[in-house]
Design a protein around this nucleic acid. Sequence first.
DNA 1: AAATATTAAATTGTCGACAATTTTATTGTT
DNA 2: AACAATAAAATTGTCGACAATTTAATATTT
Lengths: 255, 255
Amino acid sequence: MLKQDTTFVPDEAPVSHLHKVKSTSADKTSITLADQILVQIQTSIIKGELPAGSKINEQALAEKYGISRGPTREALQTLERQRLVVRAPHVGARVAQLTVSELNDLYQLRSVLEGMACELAASRITPEQLAKLEDLLATQEAALAKGDTYFQEEGDVDFHYQIIQASGNKHLQETLVGGLYHLLRMYRYQCTNKNRPVKAIAEHRRIVEAIAQRDGELASLLMRRHIEQGRKNTELRLIELQANAAAKETLANIS
Amino acid sequence: MLKQDTTFVPDEAPVSHLHKVKSTSADKTSITLADQILVQIQTSIIKGELPAGSKINEQALAEKYGISRGPTREALQTLERQRLVVRAPHVGARVAQLTVSELNDLYQLRSVLEGMACELAASRITPEQLAKLEDLLATQEAALAKGDTYFQEEGDVDFHYQIIQASGNKHLQETLVGGLYHLLRMYRYQCTNKNRPVKAIAEHRRIVEAIAQRDGELASLLMRRHIEQGRKNTELRLIELQANAAAKETLANIS
DNA sequence: AAATATTAAATTGTCGACAATTTTATTGTT
DNA sequence: AACAATAAAATTGTCGACAATTTAATATTT
């Protein structure tokens, strides 16, 4: 089990004391138990190790990570905010279910929000942010050539994330990154289609070009179209997946 | 101790549990302690009884409502999801600060989202929902004639809420109602301008007409314009309010 | 006296136990 | 055997106590 010995010392950044560092979060590695297990449960859910729709037992989960129910409960509530679990009073938590109709709702919303992000980013992005974005794009294209599918996935998340970041709208960021993005990753992880990235990255390039030219309207349009492509892809795989599950169930009922 | 008259219930809990087959549980008043105090703290914050930016002490808050820190903590986390509270590990919770830049971010996002809601509502609204909406509008106009400002405020919230509901997009609903709306109410309550509703309700009527005619594009445009009016109004009052606060502070520093 | 280091107090994070409620198992009746 | 009522088990909600950390107060050095 994990007991907290924070004795690992390799003290990091020689932060200048000149100006107050006011980073919002995510600098230290071990803040709180709830935060630590949060990311672990997150990935368990996204990867499907905790199956979609399955019941979550607080006690069992707490024991699995060697902690008490307090922090576990807190992590569960955060997961609820991220749409990865659904909780009901006195009844408990379940892993979110993946349905076609919800997928469409989700992507429809995402499309509008990331379109907005593009429009803002086109007018507000800094040269540094733009350079970073183009770097990422280059890396992605390189990864594509090598066939590194895992990095492609991560790179795609980063791509969208950086544009959202460049929008500069705090509430938009929070809504997308803190609210919708995790569920999105779950759909994408479990309904992924390996041979799509080829086109996706080309679309990324066009979006970045539009942003670089400060053409927010075009960037927004391209982004919405790009996301719609992703939706179609994911929807197809999801339908396929649910058909399999249904077939398996009827089989079990017969025997 | 607490002189809390439990009769004051600021509704605002109609979460959509749409497909719940066996909802036999009659809504007794005893759901969960966290939920109960949640709405109380909510209204305290929105009304400014807990001032914007002020520190929140878990212990004190728990004692005020005569419960332990557990449920209090949970309520605080929900408040964080609703953007009414900002928390940091080991340092605690503060009531959200009201700033002009955040107000603009918030309204910009809201504008896009409610525009989307209008577009969807125009194509999906049912006759029953439309009738209900027109009823509300009539009631609002009546209240306006009588000068009932409190109901006007509540009515406005209801108006937007019903359109969001009619959009039928679950994630959109959750994002607006569960995420942004509470903070919005806080801004509006504390930066309200009494003589605006006259025009606002006329704008409401035009939006409903557009929806009734299934003209989503127009409805969306009118809604975004309507919200922009609200933003301007609120921004003016907020600047005024902050100027006062600043003046008071310098005065205190001098003496 | 100002700035820094040290100590004390207050506050948040975590735990284990118990109470309230739901879910499952059992019993009895038709 | 199916159904309803009852009892047992499991699970969630709440509490109070203690540990870890931050904030305030005090002492020390320049």
